[in-house]
């Protein structure tokens, strides 16, 4: 598989990969901080757990949005003669990153509702 193809697949899946990283980070950090009773630290007046969830969500949203825009631009730039797989991958990229935006957002909602370690 050539480097170009690998790049295409990564871009197509970027939204979901961003979600996976966000998920790993927020769950791992919450478990570690609460498990060790290190959650009392604050960051800019916000509890560390909430701050981490918010930041990870924001970062993942940015990645998914970039992937969305990237796929969109690539798709728009494809000419009539473009190979069918290229067309398919960029369209799939638009859909996947679009759905990922919703999922990532949902993943961040708990930070607005729940206490850190209760």
């Amino acid at each position: 598989m050539s480097g170009r193809r690998t790049g295409q697949v990564l871009l197509m899946l970027a939204g979901l990969i961003a979600w996976a990283v966000q998920f790993t980070v927020i769950y791992g950090v919450t478990s570690t901080l609460c498990g060790r009773e290190w959650a009392d630290v604050t960051l800019l007046g916000v509890g560390i757990v909430h701050a981490v969830v918010a930041l990870a969500t924001l970062a993942a949203l940015i990645v998914a949005a970039l992937s969305f825009l990237g796929s969109w631009r690539i798709h728009g730039g494809l000419g009539e003669t473009a190979a069918a797989p290229d067309r398919f991958i960029s369209q799939a990229g638009i859909l996947i990153s679009g759905l990922s935006l919703v999922v990532i957002l949902w993943q961040g909602i708990p930070a607005f509702i729940l206490p850190a370690c209760a």
Binding site: Y27, T30, S31, V53, V102, V103, A116, C117, A118
Partner: peptide, 18 residues
């Protein structure tokens, strides 16, 4: 487990319905 931890899985379990 802490409610916050559970809620991440709640959110993902909801998302998989889509």
């Amino acid at each position: 487990l802490p409610k916050m931890s559970l809620s991440f899985f709640s959110a993902a379990s909801t998302a998989v319905a889509v």
